[in-house]
């Protein structure tokens, strides 16, 4: 499973406008296309916020992987958001978060979810890749950076 497969529909938002955690999450969820995969965005947002209440998904190094499982999701989906200025996301290292990878998946399916998490964790490990993503000029640039990085693994 590649990152671009997870970002079906090439869901990338460079230049998130949200100024805090809630606004960023709303913006990311609003970027999900309602259709066969996502049937109710508000319910999906509730699931993501609920998960965030348990513990922040800001894993440090400027990255957050907000995620949620919901009955209103029929297939794994994802959105990549980038905010160059960073946002306080209650990250584990206490530093601002710049890269947000939202993952939503159905309640009863774990396989694709964990495959996606593994892929994201593997790719975002590289400092160079993270810096390039943060510096991406626009959505197309970010997609090109991801595609280039995916060729390495």
């Amino acid at each position: 499973m590649t990152l671009m497969e997870i970002l079906s529909g090439r869901s990338v938002v460079v230049g998130l406008k949200g100024q805090n955690k809630r606004e960023v999450l709303e913006e990311l969820v609003n970027s999900l296309e309602v259709g066969d995969k996502i049937t109710d965005r508000d319910k999906v947002l509730d699931a993501v916020l609920l998960r965030e209440e348990i513990m922040s998904t800001g894993i440090g190094h400027g990255i957050a992987i907000p995620h949620g499982k919901s009955e209103y999701v029929t297939e794994l989906g994802g959105v990549l958001g980038i905010k160059k200025e960073g946002v306080d996301f209650d990250a584990l290292d206490g530093k601002p978060t710049y890269i947000f990878f939202l993952l939503v998946s159905p309640l009863d399916v774990s396989g694709p979810h964990i495959k996606a998490l593994a892929r994201i964790s593997r790719l975002l490990k590289g400092e160079d890749f993270r810096q390039k993503l943060i510096a991406a000029a626009d959505n197309e640039d970010a997609i090109a950076i991801i595609e280039e990085e995916e060729k390495k693994y």
Partner: peptide, 16 residues
Amino acid sequence: TDMLPGLQTALTHLQT
């Protein structure tokens, strides 16, 4: 070995 990607994946999954 690099445990970090595996641990991050496991942690995120288990927390959900």
